[in-house]
Design a binder for these strands. Structure first.
Lengths: 216, 216
DNA sequence: TCAAAAACCGGTCAACCGGTCTGTTATTGT
DNA sequence: ACAATAACAGACCGGTTGACCGGTTTTTGA
């Protein structure tokens, strides 16, 4: 009578799904509360995972952070930034579309969590060289995608900034800063302000604005 | 013979200096390692202070953070940003001077620690409402100082951006983002790139560039 | 088929963290 | 002069943190 089907502790191993669950929970927690403010126990409990499983897939908390950066944060940047930029007709359109979409999504939530890359970069860049490199790689990939689009625009004869390399970097940094402000103020207004300013730099509203005919 | 002057445990209370020492050490540690990565024991040891003294002046770690923000971070912003901006002939000159000075100082150190306000804002804005408000106040004071100068420029007839309010916010956020990038890359290059782009927005090299004669 | 490896369990541990407490010394108000 | 109070000393504590490890179950591969 103690051998009913409920007493049978059947288990099925699914290491891929297990790893994914841990990574999802960790990525969310790291963004919402930060790396140091999140304990491994928090992650274990939230993911419904035992210490043994966590330690099996990620031997240390740092290893977990590294995986989150390389597999989740980088993926988020690709999805929200790189792909939309590539798909857009011009870099300017792509950038503005991303800003608009980000602001809209933030309005729907009640909390502004900030930019995942930026959050972790500021907390971890000085803590560990390997983590810093991983973060740097994400920033570099992001910036490179914008630069690629900017260069493609130039070849198709569209109006564009004088220095595409600097402009690509500037888009990344002003977005990061805007998200930091938005997080502090808990408002999307900085995002909109930033978008408006970048819009002016990436070419006026009409076809040909006044970027550089008077320069040099 | 055991009563030499070295064996006399004379103590002289100097609560103001004591408080200042704690605050100095805490501000430095919070910027270099972050809030959560710094323990109260670290601060006690680095400042040569006992737990009793620390607790007497700052009843909790949060209270210490609040004091650091309001008395050290805010002061740093006033010294490195607000005063130079006020003293400069125009907002444009002031902003560029601050960027130049910051990049130069960072070059002299071997580590880029990032912007103190931004660092703490990203780590603490979501952790506590009171801390968030204090950080927001610092950002607001910073932005207001730039705006004041921008408006003063307009009244003296100098060329300036169409929307001074948005531009003031944009300077703050792009600087924050540039510092985040600089911290991640451990390079001052993002600072210089950002300065160059802002320079173009705040009026060209020569007296009258092409900011808005074609604008609506 | 069956040993080896991978996946997972869950308890344990030392170090640490932030805070509290009691006691001692210095300063101040009257 | 002398309480009252502020300033400081330093031990102490409960809870947490990240990591570790022996054991069990599942899967793999030959």
């Amino acid at each position: 009578m103690a051998e009913t089907e409920t007493s049978r502790p059947k288990r099925s191993n699914d290491p891929v799904a297990m790893r994914r669950r841990i990574l999802d929970v960790a990525a969310e927690a790291f963004q919402a509360r930060g790396y140091h403010a999140t304990s491994t126990h928090d992650i274990m409990h939230a993911a419904g995972v035992t210490g043994g499983a966590l330690h099996h897939h990620f031997p240390s908390k740092k290893a977990l952070a590294l995986a989150v950066i390389r597999e989740r944060v980088a993926a988020a940047v690709r999805e929200t930034w790189i792909e939309p930029i590539q798909a857009a007709p011009t870099a300017r359109d792509g950038v503005l579309a991303v800003f608009g979409r980000t602001a809209r999504e933030l309005d729907e939530r009640r909390r502004v969590l900030g930019c995942p890359v930026n959050n972790l970069a500021i907390e971890l860049a000085l803590a560990d060289a390997e983590l810093r490199q991983a973060l740097q790689d994400v920033f570099a990939e992001w910036q490179a995608a914008i630069l690629r689009k900017l260069r493609a625009d130039q070849e198709t004869g569209a109006v564009g900034p004088a220095d595409p390399d600097a402009m690509a970097a500037f888009v990344v940094m002003s977005f990061s800063g805007a998200m930091a402000l938005a997080k502090t103020r808990q408002s999307t207004e900085p995002l909109e302000t930033c978008a408006r300013q970048l819009k002016a730099m990436l070419g006026g509203d009409a076809a040909g604005a006044a970027p550089d005919p008077a320069a040099a």
